[in-house]
Amino acid sequence: MNASSLALPDYRQQRPEVAARFQRIKERPVVLRIEDLAKHFGSGPAARTVFDGVSLDIHRREFISIIGASGCGKSTLIRIVAGLEEASAGRILLDGKPVSGPGPDRGMVFQGYTLFPWRTVKENVMFGLEMGGMDRSTADAEARQWLEMVGLGKFAESYPHELSGGMKQRVAIARALANNPRILIMDEPFGALDALTRCKMQGYLLQIWRKVDVTILFITHDLDEACFLSDRIIVMGANPGRIIEVIENPVPRPRSVEQFLTPEFLALKQRLDDIIHAPGAAEAEEKLPVVKLTEAGDEVE
């Protein structure tokens, strides 16, 4: 397409250090295995397949993004992983053991902050710890540490409604991480934030991920976000939902905002763009039946 004239490298081409990193990741144990997962709604002739035959191995401390057009079932997929919905076929293995139903071993951060409004910020972080049977004073100390880590120590006694969207989402991340989950599932966590805050949050998330032993499964529809954050990017297609391609991100770590314009980044983004916006992948933009209401010669494009 038009970007090909810029002579971008192949997105599969990896620098030696990047290739070595992926080699190391693959040698790590598999934390989460998705085996031939399928989800159908309804039954009989009215049945609709959300996705089918989805298999994926996620290694320890890997950062995986799932990206795809709306309707590809990516949200349903991770809700099944989190145990909030049931699969029609296939199974989920966490550290080799099949799981069903939600549990603290799979932490989740939702797009709508879902902080408990009646609990202070610190009490929100303590929730999972209390559910795990930890006594209050230990949970209190632990929650404070997590809040310090996400930079909100000063807001421990505030209520969620007193925080901005980005701050709320950091509390939600701290709350999920406090449970020491094997995997942190994030469902478009920054989707509701403005562009500037989202950018900051991506930086924070990378900082946190570097410091904590956690594997991240991240859903987004923002190509830049996927390219900036992930190790591997799972591209899903719709009708029926399926994995189209698993891309190893060629952008070296540590990541920084400057990398947005590097050839690897652009090549990767171009590739994602090509898959997601491929003809037939989504409906073509409809021609709107708008009558011209401006004067002749008053063209904006």
Binding site: A82, G83, L84, G101, P102, G103, P104, R106, G107, M108, F110, G112, T114, F116, P117, W118, R119, F127, G128, E130, M131, G132, A172, R175, A176, N179, I185
Partner: peptide, 26 residues
Amino acid sequence: DPALIEAAQTLGARGWRLVRRVIIPA
């Protein structure tokens, strides 16, 4: 808000504790 219940479930709350610690205070 069902999202609050789901969030609590992913944090390890279930059964009667979900009612006592989430639904009632909410």
